[in-house]
Design a protein around this nucleic acid. Sequence first.
DNA 1: CGGAATCCTCTTCGATACTG
DNA 2: CAGTATCGAAGAGGATTCCG
Lengths: 215, 215
Amino acid sequence: MEERSYNQNCALAHALDVIGERWSLVLIRELLIGPRRYKDLMDGLAGIGNNLLASRLKELELANIVERTILPPPAGSAVYKLTSLGRSLESAVQELIKWGFQLNNKGQPENLSRPEWDIVAMRSLFQPDAAKGKNGACQFQVEDVFYYVVINNGRVEIELGEIRCPDAIVTTDRKTLAKLGKGMDVNTAINNNHLQITGSVLKFSEMLALFKPGD
Amino acid sequence: MEERSYNQNCALAHALDVIGERWSLVLIRELLIGPRRYKDLMDGLAGIGNNLLASRLKELELANIVERTILPPPAGSAVYKLTSLGRSLESAVQELIKWGFQLNNKGQPENLSRPEWDIVAMRSLFQPDAAKGKNGACQFQVEDVFYYVVINNGRVEIELGEIRCPDAIVTTDRKTLAKLGKGMDVNTAINNNHLQITGSVLKFSEMLALFKPGD
DNA sequence: CGGAATCCTCTTCGATACTG
DNA sequence: CAGTATCGAAGAGGATTCCG
């Protein structure tokens, strides 16, 4: 809580004074997925150490980036969520994600992997210009995580949960999804039993093409 | 040099593994201004500590973000500059800067202040859409630092140095420039002797209007 | 003087254990 | 489940010295 600061009159330094500490941006990524309980955060950040999570949350609450709320009954549990100031960090996070895709991410197999992270990543890779006039809805089940992608004339919405009547229901694993994003053929993945699609395969392929690492 | 890592298969984590350490992004900001000597970096980062600067530079060189080159004679001095991978971080830095402007930057007077930082900040605040079809060239002298702004039909170039035949030559200080950016009247600043303009005041005002904190 | 290695002290990190 | 307490290890941040 000692407010370490760069002491520079520069907007970048001001930003980093608040969200530049270790784990802060990764924590914010976790909350960009949606409101999370303390336990969810511990799981999603594995490695953070209990005390650090607690103190980061406190710092970010103080900085008006995160707020703690109690869900209405019957849930009744405490969750952390982003304030509007916190949500406005998403474009910065997206740029960092786009940049991160350029790296030779060695992707060590022992690394942690969570399907939820793709939600934030896919929002970053979405190409609004290419999606003008297009629409579609796709339900994903990646490993044990359900989320959906809805494209509506150049805008995209990607959220945890399920929707009714999607154009396609897609079941796969994170690794295959990554390969598909990098250009792997959809039918090859299906034939290798790494991808199951119920509904319109064409619609899925069309939507897939709207996500690209490059600008 | 022990390569601390988040160990997460996530592009954000990969990015932060490389540029998430303390001082890294501030150092990159410094290099976005232009190639810098070791001494320039020490000055611009005041507070970093000699050993940290050396080790950060080494890490970033290893990650192919920064390269060390020797200027041709007669200069002959060693400078650090960004590689193309490093330069591609500018959009992420710009988003962080835009976000930083939203904060109540207490702007403690004892904070360090360097006019060069406005070069990177102004690139971030430039509104390309509003600048369609407009152009102009402005030479700045802010405190002891010379830089220029050239706008050419929706594109902007802001660099250290001087150009020939600008539409306006502007002499001011950082604090006044910040106020002008926030809407202070140009003529008021001139009358208070905080701003001197040689050439077209109108052109300066026109160009100034193309820089906005909001998106 | 630019650039970097070496010490030394202090803070933060990270992992485990512990409590309401 | 949601945190606090504790403690060794690592990193930050100065100062000083060394090498070119």
